[in-house]
Amino acid sequence: MKIRIKFTKTGRLRFIGHLDVMRYFQKLMRRAGVDIRYSEGFSPHQIMSFAQPLGLGDTSEGEYVDIDVLSTASSEEMIRRLNEAGKEEIRILKYVKIADETRRSNAMSNVAAADYRVYFRGGLPDSNMLAAFFAQENIPVSKKTKTKEEIVDIRPLIYDWGLEEEGLFLRLSAGSAANLKPDTVMEAWNAFSQKEGQAAEAGHSEGGTQSFPYHFHRLELYARREGQLIPLYALGEEIKEESAE
């Protein structure tokens, strides 16, 4: 049976890397007594696949891992057990059963978009300038690969944006097809605001000289179904007490 788990990564645990998160879950499965499926061989490993690694230092309330289990209790019970055995900084939010065919294209390859909130350590940027930035028809950024450097337009990969009280909301294309990281957007914004800002006030941007001016918080990951973006967990269904096996 395929299970999709949605979880958070917050607080001090934002400083552990992606591989550490994987190791964390492997141990969590054992502590919580999840009847997970193992591979064969001398060093059996759990069948587990994570969606979209998060950058070190970033936080999230929309992380996903898919697992294979042999049996399971209800969603409610499993969430309780996992949270009891786990840390509060990695909280399990959803535990749903997904159809086998959904799983075949696993959590990783399901991803089509991601929502982020960008916090500004040096205060919110000027909303007019921000609007001007997103109003551009093209936002070219240079992308380095191993062999060459090419210019790509990231504007079509920005699906939505909005300035909120706490920070900047971004909905970006994600996944294996066309992945846009929020860092890339903010680098482009930096370049834009510096250029504009210089013309306007000859001062420096809201990031100032800080080396880490932004904090990225992921809100949700989406899959695309019939043209619609739906949260990854919504592809599955809750396991009710009666139907637990």
Partner: peptide
């Protein structure tokens, strides 16, 4: 600070919070 933790190699060494 977050800023220091992001500047050093393997910040997980310094945060505690182990199981």
């Amino acid at each position: 600070s977050e800023e220091i933790l992001l500047r050093v190699e393997k910040p997980a060494r310094y945060i505690g919070g182990e199981i």
